[in-house]
Design a binder for these strands. Structure first.
Ligand SMILES: [Mn+2]
Ligand SMILES: [Mn+2]
Ligand SMILES: [Zn+2]
Ligand SMILES: [Zn+2]
Lengths: 120, 120
DNA sequence: AACTTTAATGCAACTTAGTCGCATTAAATG
DNA sequence: CATTTAATGCGACTAAGTTGCATTAAAGTT
């Protein structure tokens, strides 16, 4: 779906900052933090966070916290889990798990542990 | 296992603060934040966090971040997932899921979404 | 039991991801 | 184009968690 439609659909104003963010995350296809992209984006920190919070609210993005209080954002295509390594701090998308919980509305899931490289 | 043994086993010094923390979390049997217990424990904030970090390192506790950067600690009996509601912010232990990932060492898991009460 | 080593504690200062207030600017609607 | 309403930038702020340092208390040793 086109970025502008996406925004109109959610009744959000179409602004350069929002287009920039959505296009960037559509391209990257992986979770990124503010720190990761602050030098490549063209907007204030507050604008970044305000927009990402809104994107999460309306369901365009999923958000999760890594080890140590850093927030990661990902454009929501197909819902899937994320594995966060406590050793090397890498984050992997885990598409093989399909989590269902009766009665609950599952938005996203994170698994913490040691990744393949770090479980020697 | 007795608290003192538990500590000796992990080669941690047996101190009043550590005993207090472990006994408290053994009793409560659920994830708690510093905020939750600061008024009932008898130690400095720094001591609390230093000990909890150590407890996680040695595998006595599992730790996860809720919505919004607050860290929750739980005495590790049987590993299980936690459901965090984005609406009412409640945290539920989900014992029915048993997550295995080949090659990975899974420590803990959090699921975000709407809980039974909040999915009207 | 005293002696020594090493790690734990309290306190205050610090760090830092994220938020907020406010004045300014720019979308949307007609 | 005029009006309304929401988004932006900026700086100040918040608060969870950390760190440095002097002090105290475990644990091991004589
Ligand atoms: Mn992913
Ligand atoms: Mn639990
Ligand atoms: Zn790893
Ligand atoms: Zn709920």
């Amino acid at each position: 779906m086109k970025t502008q439609e996406l925004l109109r659909d959610k009744k959000l104003k179409v602004t350069p900052a929002r287009i920039e963010l959505i296009e960037l995350f559509k391209r990257e296809k992986k979770p990124l933090s503010y720190e990761d992209i602050k030098d490549t984006i063209n907007m204030d920190r507050a604008t970044f966070y305000r927009n990402m919070n809104k994107f999460e609210e309306v369901g365009l993005f999923s958000v999760f916290e890594s080890n140590s209080k850093i927030r990661f954002f990902e454009f929501k295509l197909t819902p899937h889990a994320h594995f966060i390594c406590i050793e090397c701090h890498s984050i992997e998308c885990i598409k093989s798990l399909d989590i269902k919980l009766d009665g609950y509305e599952v938005h996203n899931m994170t698994i913490k542990g040691r990744c393949k490289n770090c479980t020697l």
